[in-house]
């Protein structure tokens, strides 16, 4: 990510509902930079989300992982590390569940910022907790919610 883009991302976050103590850009001068974000759901549970910026962000869709709690499990205690259309996950890495957010058809480097990804992950987490309560897949909750 260029310094110019970094300043844009930082500016968006500074003017958003995400508070500075919730996030931090990590390892920015290395080949594996990422954004770490603490997210609290409506139930008050806390999660850490890692947005991987190493693969030429924003021109490629960044991988997004839930790094804490690790690993996230299904209601029945099953793994979520395999790709699942119904659970909106991709192949996990290092024991961390990878969240599916924007697809190739929707991704637009000049229109989508990290803030929007964070919002999508927040929605994913709320749906995940609905799954824990009901056993229904995330896909069932998101049906009809065009976004």
């Amino acid at each position: 990510m260029t310094n110019e883009r970094y300043q844009i991302e930082l500016g968006v976050l500074q003017n958003s509902t995400i508070k500075p103590k919730q996030y931090r850009f990590m390892d920015m001068n290395t080949s594996h930079p990422y954004l770490a974000v603490a997210i609290q759901t409506n139930s008050l549970r806390c999660y850490v989300v890692k947005i991987d910026l190493s693969d030429n962000y924003p021109y490629n869709i960044p991988k997004v992982f839930i790094t804490s709690p690790k690993p996230l499990l299904t209601r029945s205690g099953g793994s979520m590390l395999s790709p699942s259309h119904s659970m909106h996950t991709l192949a996990g890495e290092n024991g961390c569940v990878r969240v599916c957010h924007y697809g190739h058809a929707d991704w637009a480097p000049n229109r989508i910022t990290l803030y929007q990804i964070i919002i999508k992950v927040r929605i994913w987490l709320e749906m995940y907790e609905c799954h824990l309560k009901t056993g229904r897949t995330l896909d069932e909750f998101l049906k009809g919610a065009a976004y």
């Binding site: 603490a38 806390c46 804490s68």
Partner: peptide
């Protein structure tokens, strides 16, 4: 009244918790 922040856990991994 709802806040969350990043901290470094005992194992060096990032954790999220309330202030």
């Amino acid at each position: 009244r709802r806040e969350v922040e990043l901290v470094i856990g005992d194992d060096g991994e990032l954790e999220a918790m309330t202030p």
